[in-house]
Structures are given as structure tokens and as C-alpha cells.
Design a protein around this nucleic acid. Structure first.
Ligand SMILES: [Zn+2]
Ligand SMILES: [Zn+2]
Ligand SMILES: [Zn+2]
Ligand SMILES: [Zn+2]
Lengths: 158, 158
DNA sequence: CGGTAACTGCGAATGAGTCGCAAAAACTAA
DNA sequence: TTAGTTTTTGCGACTCATTCGCAGTTACCG
């Protein structure tokens, strides 16, 4: 799986801002919660709850997957985090801030992350044709990537 | 969930044809397998394995979900059946033959099923812009349906 | 420092799907 | 038909992702 994500600069400061947002909503900033947030700020691409939990081991006297899920859920409610479903695997979590959308390859499972605007054209066409406002933030746009496509077209030889 | 599927005519004959296809591949036609096939031929829209299994109760001395899954799997391998993931729920199975694709509403979970060609324009644009060959057969095109869209735009009042 | 929510760890539960295995069909060839 | 071969089945147990209940902590407010 390949994901092209520029990691947000000044992670530490950003985490502090996020933490502040939590406090403002009356949410507490536990060590675990902060670490989940840090994991997401430091990540290259979206992470599974499992992977986040792994990252917590050692950095915390004891941690547990259920709490990671609960934290991801509240962070999502607050709008700091969101998740995507890239294919069959577990849900993957990322910061909500940089509005990426995803193109997933059904064959090689590569994932390309693109800025929201790059899909505006397609969104416009979907809207025009069907009246739907397409969204690729929670479920990606799925297809065959150029590589797999070339391969499968190679097979169409006489 | 609303799905617009015309059910294939002459169900009985179609089932017989499918059954023949199975025999030709050296697969056996057990009562359970035939009933799964019939369930799909008779269905309005895609069905979960669970629902198919429910439909089998009574029509069969004893039946079981695992076997339904196994049958769906082999029917899929043979190309008679396929499945879609419409949102978070379980996978939904349908006949492979009428090549529908789906538009799913992320908000009200309505599902619109469209003929493959109706998405050709969008597929072309995706291909042009990203080199991807978009597919909406296994994972649908997700967005806000016109209703939910109108509603959410209503909220944007001053 | 308390006090009082909110949060955590744990273990158990859920839902979707898969696997192993022995018993029961379905085809096959005699 | 029947015996033999091979698939399928039913069952129960299992995995994996996610959620829940609850008692024990911990973060924040005063
Ligand atoms: Zn989701
Ligand atoms: Zn690919
Ligand atoms: Zn699938
Ligand atoms: Zn809707």
C-alpha cells in the first residue's frame, strides 16, 4: 500500500492546538488520548487502530485497544480525526484537517491520496448526471491503477 | 434502502441455465446451492448471506450460514454471482449477470442501482485525469443523494 | 488537596466471515 | 443398481474488527 501524504509540519505545535480544542469542548487530555493524536500527526498515511495501539506500547504504563477505539471515536466526534475504508481491511484513521481523498486500486491495493480539489471535476460530473454529491473521504474511489490497468490490457493480446 | 433492480424474467429457466453452467464446471448441484441461486434470481436487490440463509429455512431439512457463504464463494468463482459493499454493513450478494453498479447515499443509506453504461462518462473522466479505470461494482460510488443534499443545503441558510 | 466527572483497563460480547472435520449427498462408472 | 469417488454439508470452534459493561483511575475545577 502506497500513500502519498505530506506529514503536517510543526507536529508538536499542532498537537498542542488539537489538545486545546479538546479542552475547549470539556474533554480531558489523558496521556493515551494525547498519544493517539501524536501518532496520527506523525503518520505518513492513515493508520489502523491496531497499529496505533502498537505504537502506544512502552510509551504508556498500560494501554489497550478498546481505549484506542474509544479515543478515535471521540476525536472523530470533535472533528479532529476521520477514518476511511480502503478495501476489505480494518478502518484506517487519519487527521481530519488536510482534506485528502483516496483512489484505491482494487487489484494491487495501492492507495493514492489526492487533494480534495483534484476530484472536483469528477464531483461536478456526478452531480450533474445524478444529482449526487460524491464523497471519497470515507469510502475511496475504487478502480484499477494505471499499472494494473496496463497489465490487464496486456492480457488482451491476440 | 431503496434499490431499483428489474428482476430477471423467466427465473426458473435462468436458474436451470445457471445450474447447467455449474455442471459443466464439474460442480455439483446440491439442494442448498440451487436454493441460494434461486434466492438471488428472485431478489429485488443484493442480499446478505444472512438473509439468504433465512430464506433457506424450511425449504431445506437443515441449513447453515457457513454453507451459504461457501456456496456464494463458489458461485462467485464461477462468475454467476458477485458481491458489493454498500457502506458499513455486511457484504451483499447478487447475480453477476445484469451488470449494475451502485450509487450509495452516505447519509440516508439509500442505494440507487444504475446500468453500467450510465457511469461510462464518469469512468472516462477518471481515466483521463488519473489513469485509473474506476469500478463501482464491488465498492459503490458514495455520496449524498439529491434528497439528503437538498436537506444539507437547506441548513446553509443565513 | 478533595470531589466529581471523564477516562482507562480488563474481560466478555458482538457481528461478519472462515476453517476443520466427520457425516451425508451427488455424480460416475461398472 | 450399486459401489466408489469426490463434493458438499452441518456443526462447532475460530478469527478479526469493533463494542460494551463495569469497577478502578485520573484529569481537571475549585
Ligand atoms: Zn466507516
Ligand atoms: Zn494496482
Ligand atoms: Zn468484498
Ligand atoms: Zn440520502
Amino acid at each position: 500500500m502506497t500513500t502519498t501524504h505530506r506529514s503536517p509540519a510543526l507536529t508538536a505545535a499542532n498537537v498542542e492546538a488539537a489538545v486545546e480544542a479538546l479542552r475547549e469542548r470539556g474533554l480531558r487530555v489523558s496521556a493515551a488520548r494525547r498519544l493517539v493524536l501524536e501518532a496520527l500527526y506523525g503518520a505518513e498515511g492513515p493508520l489502523s487502530a491496531e497499529r496505533i495501539a502498537e505504537g502506544l506500547e512502552g510509551r504508556l504504563p498500560r494501554s489497550d485497544l478498546a481505549s484506542v477505539y474509544r479515543n478515535l471515536e471521540t476525536l472523530e466526534e470533535v472533528g479532529l480525526v476521520r477514518h476511511v475504508h480502503l478495501g476489505h481491511g480494518p478502518g484506517l484513521y487519519a487527521l481530519a484537517a488536510p482534506e485528502h481523498e483516496y483512489l484505491a486500486c482494487e487489484s494491487c491495493h495501492a492507495v493514492r491520496s489526492v487533494a480534495r480539489e483534484e476530484l472536483d471535476g469528477i464531483r461536478a460530473q456526478v452531480r450533474e448526471q445524478f444529482g449526487y454529491e460524491a464523497r471519497f473521504t470515507h469510502f475511496p474511489l475504487v478502480g484499477l491503477c494505471p499499472n494494473c490497468l496496463a497489465e490487464s490490457e496486456g492480457h488482451a493480446h491476440p
